[in-house]
Design a binder for these strands. Structure first.
Lengths: 144, 144
DNA sequence: CACATCATGTTGACCCATCAACCTTTTTCC
DNA sequence: GGAAAAAGGTTGATGGGTCAACATGATGTG
């Protein structure tokens, strides 16, 4: 029983490392957490967005997005104005400070992503994505 | 900016699926959570153990282990007796009920692990482990 | 022996993630 | 038009995971 040979165990550790690295960057260069950062990316990516869009684009939990947006508003990085056409939703956009933060941190995140994949050849990256895909399918089974 | 092409994003999704699957098994067949389950495995693997060993064997956080052990004692699956030779640590072992639970759930977890890897060839598994290894190394960098 | 150091655990604080219950607004459909 | 269903959000609860501070027992060195 060597845990090192368990795929799930290794993946969990890898994930922990990756998270920790991201957390470190965000702490060193901003005052937002990972979920807030992801929300900011997703908003800026559309220019303007809504929580529902953020949820779908980022496959995040809507509760998490709701809280992240609230925090981001408090921190002054995001504004929300109620949609006149649909009063259920608000239109989210980054403030100037939000955009500044975004533009400061995004290059670092891109560099990190690049560094992570730098040790892998194009073929290997392809294989990795394929394997992730298949594992994800296998992980959906619930009849154990 | 398609998040689907981000390795970190895909890994996070995969990890979430895998966790959810494990959680589902534990909820259906026991009353312990994932960290408690891992602690139980690690104790039973040695027959007897200590928190420090569990922490090292499972590369878990000691705070997490401390709380998991406390809960497991409350649930009656683990006993702790102070080591006479070293009064700082306690020797942990599973109770009879703990062992029953362990023997009931472990086969399901093994089956799950097998199913996860069933779609992958031996070569692919090897590649996967190798890639995980290298990504883990790359994820250690902190100078961004 | 005494003091510094290290190892073992415990606790509080904080963040991430998920689920369920609930409220409001919009849409669908008869 | 009106009831039912669906969509957008909010909130509370639970669990996972990490970090820092602390208390205490063990160890090792001058």
């Amino acid at each position: 029983m060597d845990l090192r040979t368990f795929l799930t165990f290794r993946l969990a550790r890898l994930q922990a490392q990756i998270n920790s690295q991201a957390q470190h960057i965000l702490q060193a260069h901003s005052d937002v957490g990972q979920s807030e950062w992801r929300v900011m990316i997703l908003i800026e990516d559309r220019g303007e967005s809504t929580m529902a869009h953020v949820v779908r684009d980022g496959q995040m939990d809507k509760a998490q997005v709701s809280r992240a947006v609230k925090t981001l508003q408090k921190k002054g990085y995001v504004t929300a104005r109620v949609d006149t056409a649909d009063h259920r939703q608000s239109i989210l956009s980054l403030t100037t400070e939000g955009r500044v933060l975004h533009n400061r941190v995004l290059p670092l995140m891109r560099a990190r992503q690049k560094h992570l994949m730098a040790g892998l050849s194009a073929d290997e990256i392809e294989v990795m994505f394929d394997l992730i895909e298949r594992l994800e399918t296998a992980a959906q089974r619930r009849d154990f």
